[in-house]
Structures are given as C-alpha cells and as structure tokens.
Amino acid sequence: MPVKQPITPVILSGGSGTRLWPVSRGERPKQFIALTDERTMFQLTLARIAGLAGATAPVIVGNAAHVDLIHDQGDEGMTLILEPMARNTAPAIALAAIALEEQDSAMLVMPSDHVIADVAAFHAAIARARDLVAQGWLVTFGIEPDAPETGFGYIALGDELADGVRKVARFVEKPDAARAAQMLADGGHVWNAGIFLFSARAYLAALAQHQPAMLAAARAAMAGASHGGNIIQPAAEAFAACPSDSIDYAVMERADKVACAPVAMGWSDVGSWDALHALAPKDAANNALHGPSYAIEATGCLIRSDGPHVTVVGANDLIVIATGDEILILPRGKSQDVRKAVAALAERVNKP
C-alpha cells in the first residue's frame, strides 16, 4: 500500500469570542476557557489529534496577544504562527500552508473553539477523505443536520466521489427558517462546520488561481518572518497588505475540486450562551448551573457565575452570566443579542 501523506493539524486560534461575553474577552477568548469540560476548548481541540493515524505535531495560527495562553495550554512540539493582525481564515490558513509546502502535508484545519463529542466518528470521516486529498481535492466536513438551524451555512451535496464523500454542489448562505426547514425535509444538505482537509500545495494552487493578491501578500509575510524557538512571526507590513476574507468565500466557493465528508459527530460551535445551555448538564427543571449558582422554582435557565453567588427565584428561561466585574441577563433564545451589550460596553469605555 502506498504511504499516505502525513496529516498536520492546523488549529486556528485567533478569534476574540465576543459572543460569549462577559466570560470570553479579547485578552482571554472562549477557546482558552473551560466551558464544556474541565479542559479548555483549545485543549479539547488538541486532544482530538490523539490516535489520528499519520498525524504530526500541530501548527497553531494565533494572536500574538495570546502566546502565553497557547504555551500554557499547548503541547510540546507544536509550531506557533502569530498573525500580525487579523485577516480572516483564508490568509491565516495560507500562512500555515506556506510553512508546510515543502513537505506537502495534508492540513487538517480546525477552529480551536468547537465541541466534537464523537472523536472516533471524526477520525473515520478523515480516513474516508484521505485518498481524495492525495488527488488534490479540497475537503470540508459537513454536519448531518438534526434541526432547521438558521445560524449555520449549509452545503448542498452532489455526486458521490468515494465511500462517504461527495462532491460539493454548492454552498448555501445562512437561510431563513422556511428555507432551512425545506433543506432539512429535502435531505442532501449538511451544516458547514468550518473544518477542512487538503494538501498544502493544493490550497496554495487554489489561492494562486482565485486569490493571487492574497497569496502574494502571505508569501511576502512568510519570506520576511522572524523565527525564534517554535514561533514564526510573519512580517507585519507585508501581511497588512493581504486582503481579508474567509476560506469559504475566497477559495471553497470558487474552486472546482471541492468535496464534503458528511459526519454525525456530536458537533457544536458553542457559538452562543443558548448553545452552551443545550450542551451543559441540567437539573430536573432544565436549569444548567455553573459555579456558585442556584435556581429556586425556576426552569430552563442557564446560570453561570465565576465569582459572586447568584440565585434565580421564580423565573423561567433566563441566561444569567456573572463575572467579577460584569453581569449579563437576557432571555434564552436571545443570546445573539449579547453583541448589543458588547457594543454598549465599548461605547462606555470610549466615551470621553
């Protein structure tokens, strides 16, 4: 049997995580916080690599402001690429692909802040996709939907390319409720999880075809990078010239050889306090309690405290989040409105 490409996990860890404010902050975003386990989201992502056939030490693409957190929570042998500034996922992945170009690893690109409950199912989906990756296909992993979610993008599946892997027919923007329900009823659609597998050279070739300016800026940034220990710091001035775009818009929606491996693996992007309530253990009244928090004659609440004792009495379906300096209260089902609180905080801080 031919030797398969090594798989290098590429973990994207540059996000600010404001959707879980006030626990998640710019200086300590959600990937570095223990939300669903005793381990942080970043540590859970690293743990997902264990037992993966052919895996090498990971490459972490992160924010220079988080370098101490990455070192404290990371593994020996990892390589850190510190983005000089945020330019979205396509340029971040380009930096890693350039670092891995010579060995042409199969890059397993994962966000650092997702939950995957069934790691064995994830590894099996990776195994199904590896032969196609060796043939130059760009593979994304689609989550088999169990509800008409409107908060995710969807992937429409085309012809089968290999056992359990299908050609991508098209990407679908986040739908309204009626469209989501129709796609769920029709079948053949999966949620776009933002997890990818492709060779470094195939990704760079796609950039050369579809995003030459982005590739040129990333190459210039890496050519001028400084190196120290396990840290690569791309040249800031060169990277500042890089267009900012997501991998979906910049590459996946434009390239020809794009495939999807559908998988049911207990996935969540933990993108809101509502999502955390859904994941968390709950009492008989459907309350999820964390820290010194209590529910009396209350149902369906998420109550989390990292400091003061919080007691909710006679209320239903509330989200109550308390930290040392901020308290957030809003109805369950409205947790996306946390952005209004973050905006108000920014206005208070910046007010002359």
Score class of each variant (00 low, 15 high):
G300H: 03
V3Q: 14
A217P: 01
C301I: 07
G324T: 12
V67A: 13
G164E: 08
T45F: 09
R48K: 10
G228L: 03
G15T: 08
G291N: 03
F32G: 02
L204G: 12
D113Q: 11
V258W: 05
K340F: 10
I49M: 01
F122Q: 09
R128Q: 01
A99P: 00
I60P: 00
R332T: 06
I155L: 11
T89Y: 06
E347A: 15
E101F: 04
P243T: 14
V165C: 13
P22A: 08
F239L: 05
W273Y: 08
M265V: 14
V310T: 01
R332Y: 02
F171I: 07
A236K: 10
M41F: 11
A97L: 00
G291L: 05
Q135A: 13
R48P: 03
S244H: 00
T36C: 11
A147Y: 15
I116Y: 14
R170K: 03
I329V: 12
A235P: 04
A200P: 10
D37W: 04
L207Y: 12
A181L: 14
G17A: 02
N287G: 05
A221I: 03
G324F: 05
A99G: 15
A121C: 07
A94R: 04
T18E: 12
D256M: 04
L276K: 03
L108W: 15
I98P: 04
G158T: 15
G224W: 06
I98Q: 02
A200M: 13
A178L: 14
H114N: 15
V190R: 03
R201D: 11
A341T: 00
L161F: 11
T150L: 11
E102V: 06
D131Y: 06
P2V: 15
E237R: 09
R48V: 09
